[in-house]
């Protein structure tokens, strides 16, 4: 009874927010080792407009020391992402990922170029000059998104109460769309960390 009353009280005390509580998800590979760079998302509330949403992290994919930094970036659909070159060599960034495909022709240091991502899904980034450079942008349509750190844990501070379907995406997941889902019954995750494991292939 208290479990139901408390969120209700919170909802009354915090008008404008659906009842919410922190959600932690621990992502591991099939052997149980923690998986970094996994993106967890929850379904968006009704009427959510991703085009107007801003995450707390910068919409920026740097090229630094011949790597994409961060390795994985989560952006809302419609985001304009900056691609600054921090190296002393030029880069030529491109993606062949479906409707988010783009190409930034050869460009030199400190030149930030903007790319818009108008479609949800995973965008694989490459550099035409440096074959070893691979990065990912996960375009989402929800405000509830987080990425796992080295410990494999991702946290969403304001996850809605009630039954939830957690979607986990990882660049190396073997499933067709790179995701796995975890259904949480109401209250399932309260005060503890939900566990999910993914089958992954070795990175290229």
């Amino acid at each position: 009874m208290i479990r139901f009353l408390l969120p209700l009280a919170l909802a009354v005390l915090a008008p404008g927010h659906a009842s919410a509580s922190p959600l932690e998800v621990q992502v591991t590979d099939a052997s149980g080792a923690p998986l970094a760079n996994a993106v967890i998302t929850l379904p968006a509330p009704d009427g959510f407009d991703p085009e107007r949403h801003r995450f707390q992290w910068p919409m920026m994919m740097e090229q630094q020391r011949l790597q994409f930094v961060p390795h994985v970036l989560v952006v809302p659909r419609g985001a304009q992402v900056e691609f600054p070159n921090r190296d002393r060599v030029r880069h030529h960034v491109y993606s062949f990922s479906g409707s988010n495909a783009f190409e930034l022709e050869l460009y030199g240091r400190e030149e930030a170029r903007l790319v818009g991502f108008g479609h949800p899904g995973a965008v694989v980034l490459g550099c035409n000059i440096h074959d070893a450079m691979i990065g990912y942008i996960r375009v989402v349509e929800t405000p509830y998104a987080a990425m796992t750190g080295a410990d494999g844990v991702a946290a969403i501070a304001d996850a809605p109460e009630g039954p939830l379907t957690v979607t986990v995406w990882h660049p190396y997941a073997t499933s067709a769309d790179g995701t796995a889902t975890l259904a949480l019954a109401e209250g399932d995750s309260a005060g503890r960390t939900a566990q999910i494991s993914l089958n992954i292939r070795a990175p290229r």
């Binding site: 070159n85 190296d87 002393r88 060599v89 030029r90 050869l106 460009y107 030199g108 240091r109 400190e110 030149e111």
Partner: peptide, 9 residues
């Protein structure tokens, strides 16, 4: 060539 050397010292 400009792009190659834009980043150069």
């Amino acid at each position: 060539l400009a792009d190659i050397f834009r980043a150069s010292d």
